[in-house]
Amino acid sequence: MPASPNSVDWFPLWLSLRVAALATIIVVTLGTLCAYLLSHKQFRGKDFFDSLVTLPLVLPPTVLGYYLLVVIGRASPLGRFYEWMTGSPLVFTWQAAVVAAVIHSAPIYIKAARAVLESVDYRFEWAAQSLGASELRTFWRVTLPLARRGLSSLATLAFARSLGDFGVTIMVAGNIPGRTQTLSVAIYDAVESGNGHAARVLVSVVSVGALLLLWAAAYFSRSPRLSTSAG
């Protein structure tokens, strides 16, 4: 829907918020699990796993997008499974944008969450286990609460980063106005089509929003850390 030069379509903002929220939930859940494995477990191929998780950070978005199209495309087993489950293909939907956002923010989250989980004094975890607590219970009742502030700050960061993906999103979710056009894609679109006003407004929104989120993340991590009051 080509609008008049001075009107701004707010759909991309809401879509981006929804995509980022969902992506953050996925990243925090799966990412914390990965970070726990990396920080607390010894297993074969750990370094390789670590590299694999970090890889999206260094690969060009086009390469990542290409891989994703192969992995979740309509011809792939994963894509077919998704289509069979939900009745619609995954690529070129807003859900694909969620996948792109996850890929965009997970590496940073996992790397930092690993450091946060490693910084929890192992003696608290040992104490719990020695008292009889299972590993899961130790994680849930001891490790996680002690890492909560650090992980909250990282979740905020992950949310902010999820808002900003462009390359992978445009490759796997496309640029369908009103359906898959996220904020960053919409800005690209506005600049391309000469809609300077929309571009300026959206750029301002993204910048201010990102700044506020980083501020929040800094606030979370600045508050006194529980695990340091042990001495």
């Binding site: 003696r123 608290f124 104490a127 719990a128 002690l146 695990s227 001495g231």
Partner: peptide, 9 residues
């Protein structure tokens, strides 16, 4: 443990 390891939270 050394330094008690009471759960601080």
């Amino acid at each position: 443990f050394q330094d008690h390891a009471l759960f601080p939270h």
